[in-house]
Design a protein around this nucleic acid. Structure first.
Lengths: 214, 214
DNA sequence: CACTGTGAATTGATTCACAGCT
DNA sequence: AGCTGTGAATCAATTCACAGTG
């Protein structure tokens, strides 16, 4: 079984490399060194070399990395060469913003279906994708071969949504609901605005005085 | 200087504890053990005990943690007892969704100001907060004592926005723009939808075949 | 000669195991 | 008796330092 030794942290850095390297390739810069990548990403050159080396020897010693080739290789490692399909569940304000952003910015990961429970939202259309009722989720996901789910429903229905996505064949979930999801065999990544903001507060001078006791 | 030994990862878990513990307190559950917290958060009991112990001995041996007291203590550690002020820059679809979510859900971190460059957006109002022009950012942030900035502008103006926020006295930034920010002395947390989705793709069966070489 | 690729050393975070209270 | 608090041990990730190569 592959991917066993590779740190998750390294995987999460690959898209960063992909962005920088494909920008360089698009700007006709043919070669880039790990030192240059380090500068552009804020990471260390060794870390970049090590991350890339997990997947093979992509560079040329004494020279650097071929930007066009590296960009293709990273896309392939991530599986993006296939065109991955995603489903968005929850067409509230956040869901709307994400759908819009994703459909206009990404080619490689496409929102192929959108679901909501609200009858007012079902039937609406955004950039060519029609909002379907949640009851159609399992079947549509299966038919379309959806592999990624994006959850922007309220916390109270997040678990249920995750289970339906799993039933529909989804293998990875991006969860914006402030709730812990319990679905095994599915890779879950959480993004929780409250957690981000509250932990940021810690790094602020507002948290510095523990002196004054009530 | 405090907070030097405490892992960032532990800080990021505090809001999770806060949520669970304050829910319990609100439900009149007076005491909770680290084992129960572990079950509700998906973390290990040892880790929870260690995280809390970084900040003092909050529990009672043989008993557990007093939920009301612990919730107050965590809020204080994070600095939330003060009511931290945040500024949102970029009132596009995402900015709108975040403003709406944050203003309705949070009491402890309040979006006190919103900025945009678009003259059409300036003057609009959401839940009592009026959108101002970016040129007013530095002064307004200083006046209001804004400590946290939320960036939802396009990547091309993210760096400039970060510098203005810093000039306005902001000490921590939540950056949704797909760009590396270079502002020292300011704590930056990035949330990048593209990175999240692309790294999720790796954990999907779409990425499994490296067999077919072109 | 310059820059990659990588074992070895280091640093950091998590888990273990048990002593210490109540 | 039960559960916290914590040094010690383990595990994982990062950084170092240099050998390998176009």
């Amino acid at each position: 079984m592959r991917r066993t030794n590779i740190p998750d942290a390294a995987i999460r850095r690959l898209p960063v490399y992909l962005r920088v390297v494909s920008d360089l390739a698009a700007a006709d810069v043919p070669i880039v060194s790990s030192a240059e990548l380090a500068e552009k990403t804020g990471l260390s050159p060794e870390q970049i070399r090590k991350d890339l080396a997990y997947f093979g020897a992509f560079g040329t010693r004494g020279v650097g990395y071929d930007t066009a080739m590296l960009s293709r290789r990273i896309a392939r490692i991530l599986g993006l060469h296939r065109g991955v399909k995603a489903a968005l569940v929850g067409f509230g304000h956040l869901g709307y913003a994400l759908a819009r952003y994703s459909l206009t910015q990404h080619k490689d990961i496409v929102i192929a279906a959108i679901f909501d429970v609200d009858p007012e939202k079902v039937g609406q259309e955004i950039l060519g994708v029609r909002v379907q009722h949640v009851s159609e989720m399992v079947e549509t996901c299966r038919q379309q071969g959806v592999k990624i789910g994006i959850i922007t429903v309220p916390a109270s229905s997040a678990q249920q949504t995750a289970e339906l996505l799993k039933a529909g064949g989804v293998e990875a979930i991006l969860n914006f609901a402030p709730a812990k999801l319990n679905v095994d065999g599915v890779f879950v990544q959480n993004i929780d605005l409250t957690i981000e903001l509250q932990s940021l507060a810690y790094y602020t001078s507002a948290s510095e005085d523990d002196t004054a006791e009530e």
